[in-house]
Amino acid sequence: MVAKKDTRTMIAVSGLSKTFVLHTQGGARISVFEDLSMDVAAGECMALDGPSGAGKSTLMRILYANYRVDRGTIKVSHEGEMVDLASSAPRTVLEVRRRTLGYVSQFLRVIPRIATLDVVAEPLRALGVGEDEAHDRARAMLARLNVPERLWDLAPATFSGGEQQRVNVARGFAAELPILLLDEPTASLDAINRQCVMGLIDEAKARGAAIVGIFHDREVRDAVADRVYDMRETLAASGDAA
């Protein structure tokens, strides 16, 4: 039997407005966007497009509830319900991040002194997966991304940019979360590893994950994105793009 394609909305953003007020710089105001709305469905990959500084990364961080918003709602489908991250308590956001919302950032920012294997296994451990199974799955992911085995027991701080990026990706995809935010996931990767990441994205989509991504690489974007959201349209009418 062919499973019915899941088309429910996984992300529903409505009326988002974001302005940075820099008190340490005399109160300078930087409007990033105003009244931004968008939806992403299960199994869909939405690419954010726009010039540098258009607010793509800012939007990603807002979707992850890392940045706050002045107005609007950011609803994500969490365990069957739509939860508005903009107005949720911190523990709710943390719970959503643990179970539903994954984030692969541009820069690997990890707790120092933790071995790569544990870095990748951590999202699984947070879900209650046992240590042995989490480590097995982490190894599989690292192997798939061609991270050499000799690096698995080392902390990633001294790795090359490409190695760090692959550890980042491995961690982001390890727990198979239903929503993924990918900020330049293939930056600093060679062609082979770019293919790997594209494969991971396709698999995620196939199992129904909703993905929002920033892909500076046109080839990757064309291969994985189902829709493109053009940030140029949402530049705040009043302000300058930072």
Partner: peptide
């Protein structure tokens, strides 16, 4: 939320 307050501080003193 910790990362929110540290990455996107709103109050002048936090900044």
């Amino acid at each position: 939320l910790t990362d929110q307050v540290l990455d996107d501080p709103q109050h002048a003193y936090s900044q």
